[in-house]
Design a protein around this nucleic acid. Structure first.
Lengths: 247, 247
DNA sequence: AGAGTCAGCTGCTCTAACCAACTGAGCTAG
DNA sequence: CTAGCTCAGTTGGTTAGAGCAGCTGACTCT
């Protein structure tokens, strides 16, 4: 087909850009509906197939969200795609004998160490209360079977940095946590000792509350040191098969 | 077609996972060739169309690299896709009146402040030499027309954190720099004063060399403070059209 | 009035053909 | 003999049309 004025070739690469431009120009917010596939075909002057391939790429970047039988919508633009990509990169590297998981952990440690010292003394009281509650909850969960420990751990790290008052920063930290956790479990890594985790989380909260930046950094550092032992003593020796057996 | 044992529906979502699994299982490194499209069709029991859509998604995540008339290869798995997604998210939010660019800058500041204090005093001498050279070069470029300033700036921030000896961390920081720079120029933001930048870079190097963590943090903070002024006084008022006019 | 059904949207998958970019073998001209 | 060209074969890119599958809402039957 190819409407007048558009180059015949190079459709695919441009299509994504043009769909992105369409979202920008129409000021579409997350969740807003995009034109249907036939409408996009007409608007962009490309075949169904090319439009769909472009959408698939945008979907992988979290820019659009496709719901079968319902429509296409502007995506949440969360960092989930980054988690996906980073996780795969880490797993692939690990299976080829590289210490990618350790590197990922070190990345988290380096960044969180800096953030926590920035946070010391200026964290809102409300967050401290919530952090205390999260440690309490994890102690309960540890006393029981241990169900939900991971989710509580995630919430702890997410809540910790809420005080820095930057939603993007919070998302990035969560994304790193998610990536690490996902890769660690996929690779069959040994879980932490919940009681040790609780004690270290408690110390982090107390250190931040006291306003002692050095102590807070040390607390984070010890926490990660503990995790690091678990990572480097397992996983590297027995590259397990991925779950989701198929192919 | 659909080979025995595979569900008839749900092809697309699984296809990506199965291709990823194929890369993992065969221990394919970056740059290694993937099966051709016909081979993948046979291997995965799906049509050409579905295979291509899956590949487009993986391409958007940097997991595979597609070269027309040549073949499909395992991608470099750089963070470029993350830059792409984050940049779009920032631009889109900006055009809807949100202060996303400022948030991105604050993210960089928070993270780099922590990293630079961690770096103070333990940075390798070789890196210091290189950083000095980079500041010198930027001074030259400022004296001339100003060509290549951006690239030198990028190199400075990249070299700074090399001493932390974590390739992943370096890539992440570069990705944040790239995202910020790209969005800032796309939105027609005012460029920095090169001489101010040079002076602040010099102070950062000297602070890190002296081993004074507090001074280093302050130097970074001032540097970002300078950038922040440029961001918040421009750009927010006149949401420019994107470049690449089309559609 | 309530529940089932059906028509219509939506996106999903397949097939088949042709276009376009790259490679390399073989031919031709110098 | 070599330099360059041509052409066939490979690979991904694009289009077309048909039918499948999930969701919605109005219509119909009980």
């Amino acid at each position: 087909m190819c409407l007048a004025g558009y180059p015949l070739a190079m459709a695919a690469r441009d299509l994504q850009e043009r769909i992105k431009k369409l979202i920008i120009d129409r000021r579409l917010a997350s969740g807003a509906p995009l034109p249907t596939e036939p409408e996009l075909m007409a608007h962009l002057g490309a075949s169904r197939n090319s439009v769909r391939e472009a959408l698939k790429g945008l979907q992988a970047m979290g820019i659009v969200e496709i719901r079968h039988g319902f429509g296409t919508y502007v995506g949440t633009m969360s960092l989930a795609p980054m988690v996906e990509g980073l996780a795969f990169r880490t797993v692939a590297g690990h299976h080829r004998g590289e210490d990618t998981l350790l590197q990922l952990l070190q990345l988290r440690e380096a960044v969180e160490t800096g953030l926590v010292s920035r946070l010391a003394g200026r964290i809102p009281d409300a967050d401290l209360v919530e952090l205390d509650a999260l440690v309490d909850r994890m102690e309960e969960q540890a006393a029981r079977g241990g169900d939900g420990i991971a989710e509580t751990d995630r919430a702890f790290h997410a809540t910790l940095y809420r005080g820095l008052d930057n939603a993007l920063l919070g998302e990035v930290m969560e994304a790193f946590w998610d990536t690490f956790h996902r890769v660690h479990t996929d690779l069959g890594g040994a879980p932490q000792d919940p009681l040790v985790t609780c004690r270290q989380h408690r110390e982090i909260v107390d250190a931040v509350r006291s306003g002692d930046a050095i102590r807070a950094e040390k607390a984070i550092s010890e926490h990660f040191g503990n995790i690091r032992v678990r990572v480097s003593t397992t996983g590297t020796q027995h590259p397990h098969r991925c779950h989701n057996e198929r192919v």
